[in-house]
Design a protein around this nucleic acid. Structure first.
Length: 832
RNA sequence: GCGGACGUGGCGGAAUUGGCAGACGCGCUGGACUUAGAAUCCAGUUCCUUCGGGAGUAAGGGUUCAAAUCCCUUCGUCCGCACCA
């Protein structure tokens, strides 16, 4: 008989610090997680958004990487050839701020931070192929970022123009539209204002239509991310047409989505930036007043100017234009509510059918003409107190009268097109991506300005344009690169004449728009990446990161992918097939932050409980997409569970070691069969949760139930074969979640490495139960439980149920109306 | 204002296809072990109850033999967009 309760010394106590260190050393061997192309297996690319190297991991990182690691380890065991890399988004302002504040070189600061973060990532037991690590601030990476800039330039997708751009004083640089949130800088939260500067742009608007249309292909993306991108791109269909200015050669072009209301135009509204203004106000009696209005409006913050709350104001220019559809002469106003950047910067004013125009016209006493009537309740202009924006029937619209306004929309545009006054037009809210930054710690824009040749690209063979180190870090309108003598000492690559370098660097979002491609071929020194390698590994099968990049990084990366596809560098349309947006880690009802003092340090948790406990807690406490409430007691609970695993396998130690791999399950006792059934049900459930659902919390709870079930054998003999089967499968299932303890316990009982084992498979036969407990309801209320044979037919269930003693008693004297039987589930008896 | 997600015990959450609401964990209660504590193990833990039951998934209504799940209305929370003509 087996002496089941004596444990070896080793199994006495779970000591995470000791075993985690041991396994991390083993995994740190250069080849352990090396990945290569393997055409025998299906590939799987699991990727977490790479971090900015701030110096320390926070719980958000821990959550992100824990999720990714489960995915990668599971897929690898399930037979996929898995690529799971890590890197650092290493350019950016904090490094430069550290240089300003403490005099450290941005590079030194960054590399020290990276080193520490890698140490912390390794302490989490993450399965990365570190051979493929990329750091965007290294010349061997940004050389290709610059090369890609040149590719965009050559394809007509990079251009420099002067424009009113977003400027953040605290960051000392311009920002892209995507990087301004509610009029504030996305990074430092300070108010952004407009500045006229010549800046580099990427022509993302060329791809607006495809970026919108292809959202449909992204069936593996959360809906809300797609909706956010859809809103951001902001496609609208309408017409563009022009109105002649009275007593002038000039025309005003306008865009409208409501061509059906053209007959209702009573004024024209121009943005204060509109170029026509200068021409029409010259010499007008109130010219000074107009200029003052323009100046005041321009001085308003973006927030004020674009808020729908702000009062609509304007000033009459004294000029008129003519509505081409009815010849009506309408006054031209300059207003604070028309945006210059959208459409044509001029808007037709139709007070009766646009709320903003209504408010404006009411304030300044402008005319109103009703052109769409409500068929259900005819409108009377004198009784209206706001615009009528719903559908209706055309009135006061000449030949279009009586038509449904929706029909008229298209007819009127046909008419405009026929008369060559206007055309159909699609507009987008999306603007081109402003990519220059007046900062040092970024990839220099590889352009040289020659007095003779103008704008010239740095020749490919001269890349990278290295960051100089003789710079002064002062904030101003110019990049610190302008203070470097070495950097600016340059001749024109074309004519050899006098020239100067572009001193702005690129938005770091450019660096992060292609890093997932570089992982496929990280050491290539001939090109950014090899096409075949990228076509093998990419697109990313599962991308995991925070929702904060719903637009920014995810939109930019989609844009890059499409451009590189058009350049023949890769063969697919979308970079990330499936996207998982993890929730935040919250403590005491708020996001962890230094200012709130509710930060829990991952390093401390790992030191106290081990990485396995930290990972387990964070995966168990909430579904991945939802915010996660940090709970110190919850962490204790996860630690307890791992101790229970250790303990029960310790109790089973001798049995496990003496058990056989193959045995006849029929030899088991009824109680053992129950445990075996639980085991195989767990295999089924955990596999489904991992493979299809990312339901790590329920997968773990199922594993807890399995371990709880095994506890009924803690002071009873267990069949050694079953004990061995139990341990083998349990450890393989735990491996993706808690890699160290799984590896250690596996090595105690089984040969090889648990992480190189195949994924568990359930035995269909083990799931079968001879008898099943079904629910008996009377009028929908549970009244009895009956144990019946498995798969008992509907007819037999209907026969059995009313005769069960308790049921018979309850339905005595009543009439059975109907019996609904669902095999293996329930019987509902409807009585009267 | 528009668009979206959501609302389940003291708490985190489960219920995947409409079929026993509250799995699992935390907390709490009781017990075992212990001189005692810690740890561990076992049991209990939605609410009400006259112990027969009854009520219950934000509120109200509907569909159905059967609703947390589907439909309608209302309320609330969170997120996104917000003068884009």
């Amino acid at each position: 008989m087996l002496n089941f309760y004596v444990r070896s010394n080793f199994m006495e106590k779970y000591n995470p610090q000791e075993i985690e260190k041991k396994w991390q050393q083993i995994w740190d061997a250069p080849d352990y997680y090396r990945t290569d192309i393997d055409n025998e297996k299906p590939k799987y690319y699991a990727l977490e958004m790479f971090p900015y190297p701030s110096g320390n991991l926070h719980m958000g990182h821990v959550r992100n990487y824990s999720i990714g690691d489960v995915v990668a380890r599971y897929r690898s065991m399930a037979g996929f050839n898995v690529l799971h890399p890590m890197g650092f988004d290493a350019f950016g302002m904090p490094a430069e701020n550290a240089a300003i504040a403490h005099g450290v070189k941005p590079g030194d600061w960054t590399f020290a931070n990276i080193k520490n973060m890698i140490r912390q990532q390794k302490a989490m037991g993450l399965a990365y192929d570190w051979e493929r690590e990329v750091e965007t601030c290294r010349a061997d990476y940004y050389r290709w970022t610059q090369w890609l800039f040149e590719l965009f330039y050559k394809r007509g997708l990079a251009y420099k123009k002067e424009a009113a751009v977003n400027w953040c004083d605290t960051c000392g640089t311009v920002l892209a539209n995507e990087q301004v949130v509610d009029g504030k800088c996305w990074r430092c939260d300070h108010e952004v204002h407009k500045k006229n500067l010549a800046q580099w742009f990427f022509k993302i608007t060329d791809y607006a239509d495809e970026l919108l249309a292809d959202l449909e292909k992204l069936t593996g993306w959360p809906n809300r991310v797609k909706i956010m991108q859809e809103n951001w791109i902001g496609r609208s269909e309408g017409a563009e047409f022009s109105l002649e200015v009275v007593d002038s050669e000039e025309k005003i072009s306008v865009y409208t989505t409501r061509p059906d209301t053209i007959f209702g135009i009573t004024f024209m509204a121009l943005a204060v930036e509109h170029p026509l203004i200068e021409k029409i106000i010259a010499g007008k009696p109130n010219e000074t007043e107009i200029r003052e209005f323009i100046k005041a409006t321009r001085n308003m913050s973006d927030m004020e100017r674009t808020s729908s709350e702000s009062e609509k104001r304007g000033i009459f220019t004294g000029a008129y234009c003519v509505n081409p559809v009815n010849g009506r002469k309408v006054p031209i106003w300059i207003t604070n509510y028309v945006l210059y950047e959208y459409g044509t910067g001029a808007v037709m004013g139709v007070p009766t059918h646009d709320e903003r125009d209504w408010m404006f016209a009411t304030k300044y006493g402008l005319d109103k003409i009703l052109v769409i009537d409500n068929p259900a309740a005819p409108l009377e202009l004198s009784k209206m107190d706001n615009a009528y924006i719903d559908a209706g029937v055309m009135v006061n619209s000449g030949e279009f009268d009586g038509m449904q306004n929706e029909t008229a929309k298209s007819k009127i545009v046909d008419w405009l097109e026929a008369k060559k006054i206007g055309t159909r037009k699609i507009n987008y809210k999306l603007r081109d991506w402003l990519i220059s930054r007046q900062r040092y710690w970024g990839a220099p824009i590889p352009v040289i300005y020659c007095e003779k040749c103008g704008e010239v690209l740095v020749p490919e063979e001269d890349l990278p344009v290295l960051l100089p180190d003789d710079v002064e870090f002062k904030q101003g309108a110019l990049s610190p690169l302008s203070t470097s003598k070495k950097f600016n000492d340059v001749k024109c690559p074309k004519c050899g004449g006098k020239a100067r370098r572009e001193t702005d660097t690129m938005d770091t979002f450019i660096c992060s728009s292609w890093y997932y491609l570089r992982y496929a071929d990280p050491h290539n020194d001939k090109k950014p990446f090899d096409r075949d390698k990228v076509n093998y590994w990419n697109p990313v099968d599962q991308y995991i990161g925070g929702i904060e990049h719903a637009i920014l990084h995810l939109l930019y990366s989609r844009f890059f992918t499409k451009v590189l596809r058009d350049a023949g560098m890769l063969d697919y349309d979308e970079p990330f097939t499936n996207l998982l947006t993890q929730g935040m880690v919250i403590k005491d009802g708020a996001k962890m932050s230094k200012s709130l003092g509710n930060v829990v340090s991952p390093e401390e948790i790992i030191a106290k409980y081990g990485a396995d406990t930290a990972r387990l807690f964070i995966l168990f406490a909430a579904p991945v997409e939802r915010d996660l409430d940090w709970s110190d007691q919850g962490v204790e609970g996860s630690f307890r569970f791992l101790n229970r695993v250790w303990r029960i396998l310790g109790i089973f130690e001798k049995a496990i070691k003496s058990g056989a791999e193959n045995y006849d399950a029929e030899t088991l006792t009824a109680e053992e069969k129950d445990l075996r059934r639980t085991l195989h049900k767990t295999i089924k459930k955990v596999t489904e949760d991992l493979h299809d659902r990312f339901a790590f919390n329920t997968a773990i709870s199922t594993l807890m139930e399995l371990v709880n079930a095994a506890h009924s054998f803690q002071d009873k003999l267990i069949n050694p074969n079953l004990a061995r089967e139990f341990a083998n499968n349990l450890l393989r299932m735990l491996a993706p979640f808690v890699p160290h303890i799984s590896a250690e316990l596996w090595s105690q009982f089984f040969a090889g490495d648990v992480h190189k084992q195949s994924w568990v498979k359930f035995d269909e036969a083990a799931l079968v139960e001879d008898t099943i407990e079904i629910v008996v309801q009377i009028n929908g209320k549970v009244r009895e439980h009956a144990t019946v044979a498995n798969n008992l037919s509907r007819a037999e269930l209907e026969k059995i149920a009313p005769n069960l003693p308790r049921v018979a008693e309850l339905i005595a004297g009543k009439k059975i109306v109907k019996i609904i039987a669902v095999p293996n589930k329930l019987i509902n008896i409807v009585v009267k």
